[in-house]
């Protein structure tokens, strides 16, 4: 199944690498990625589409555990009838860092 995550994070050294690495390590194959940092350069947001047999909740929880991730949400996922969009993005489980 394909689904898309929106991730908000503190823009610390290597934070995007951490998020992408965690997804790969947990068997979520990255299909597309768009990321940008805020004007003040303190924050970064990313929109990541992944494909996996693993449950979406697992991706959300694993990314939510990263110390510099401040928010992770599900914005859409593939269903039998095409894509299910969530506006505003749906937070399945908010995990507290550390």
């Amino acid at each position: 199944m394909k689904f898309t995550l929106r991730v908000q994070m503190n823009n610390t050294e290597g934070v995007l690498e951490r998020v992408l690495g965690r997804l790969r390590q947990r068997n979520f194959n990255i299909c597309s990625l768009a990321a940008d940092s805020s004007k003040c350069n303190s924050f970064m947001s990313a929109r990541i589409t992944v494909e996996s047999e693993r449950p979406m909740e697992s991706a959300l929880k694993q990314i939510g555990k990263l110390y510099d991730v401040t928010e992770v949400q599900l914005s859409e996922h593939e269903t039998n009838n095409g894509y299910q969009h969530y506006e505003p993005a749906k937070t399945l489980e908010v995990c507290v860092s550390v």
Binding site: E13, G14, E17, R18, G21, R22, Q25, L66, Y67, D68, V98
Partner: peptide, 16 residues
């Protein structure tokens, strides 16, 4: 080592 250890650590720091 900051990169190598990334999948293993809970978090890491590289003070600048």
């Amino acid at each position: 080592i900051y990169g190598i250890s990334m999948p293993l650590v809970k978090h890491s720091f590289l003070p600048r």
